[in-house]
């Protein structure tokens, strides 16, 4: 297996507006990487391009050395909002969907995660709060054994206590060689588990640094992120 993610010269336009320009990014196996940037910076778009649901882009995107969209989808797990299911759908039915269509889905792993998240498998989507749905999405995402996990603001609706518990446990759920790319606004909360930070600004990756290097400069990840924007504004 090659690198879990390799992006070369990525350009994406929508409505005649450039959203991503000349983006290059390579992630090594076994890392937890934060994807940071302002609202509208293109974090979600980038994840959608990687997972093959956004179209009409230029450049090369490879997941575990695979460039074809179907192969990429097979080697990554993306936090989807489950919008394809009716509100009356039970968790059990969603699990069946995953079992049938994803060969790497582990029911055993899901059951462990479901219990950890305190979710009842007979619950319907309509009966769940935003936070509960997000917990379910995280459980489903990590029940697949893939090379790359894409987590797009996965904790925004989850209460503070549960969020801390989940973030601490993420490292246990992923396989040793798998890489996680996570975009989130709670930088300080995820900082403890991060290996690298990627900042998107001006439609491209403008900073890719290891947390080790950041800490070596006597800065926390949050301070680094804030000072990065401050510096840019001052300039």
């Amino acid at each position: 297996m090659g690198n879990p993610l390799e992006i070369t010269d990525l350009v994406y336009k929508k409505n005649q507006k450039k959203i991503i320009t000349d983006l290059n990014l390579t992630l090594k196996p076994g890392k937890i990487v934060a994807l940071l940037g302002e609202n509208g910076a293109g974090k979600t778009t980038l994840m959608r391009i990687i997972s093959g649901v956004a179209k009409n882009y230029r450049g090369t995107v490879k997941v575990a050395s695979f460039a074809k969209e179907a192969d990429r989808k097979a080697h990554l797990s993306f936090t989807d909002g489950l919008t394809g299911f009716a509100n009356s759908t039970k968790i059990n039915d969603i699990v069946k969907f995953y079992q049938i269509l994803y060969h790497d889905f582990s029911l055993k792993q899901f059951e462990q995660l479901r219990k950890f998240m305190n979710l009842d498998s007979d619950m319907r989507l309509s009966e769940m709060s935003k936070g509960m749905k997000e917990k379910l999405v995280i459980a489903l995402t990590f029940s697949r054994k893939t090379d790359l996990y894409l987590l797009d603001e996965p904790f925004s609706g989850i209460d503070a206590m549960a969020r801390k518990k989940i973030i601490k446990s993420i490292i246990l759920w992923k396989q040793e060689k798998s890489t996680i790319l996570v975009s989130d606004h709670f930088v300080n909360e995820i900082a403890a588990v991060l290996d690298e930070v990627v900042i998107i600004k001006n439609k491209t990756v403008c900073m890719h640094k290891s947390t080790e290097a950041i800490r070596a400069d006597n800065q926390s990840v949050e301070e680094f992120y804030e000072s990065f924007y401050q510096r840019e504004e001052d300039e």
Binding site: R48, S51, G52, V53, K68, E69, A70, D71, K73, A74, F78, D80, G81, L82, T83, G84, F85, L101, Y102
Partner: peptide, 16 residues
């Protein structure tokens, strides 16, 4: 058309 535009269905590892 609902399936076509749904991200849930489009994320399944199958050629478009």
């Amino acid at each position: 058309e609902r399936v076509s535009k749904s991200q849930t269905w489009r994320l399944v590892p199958i050629d478009d």
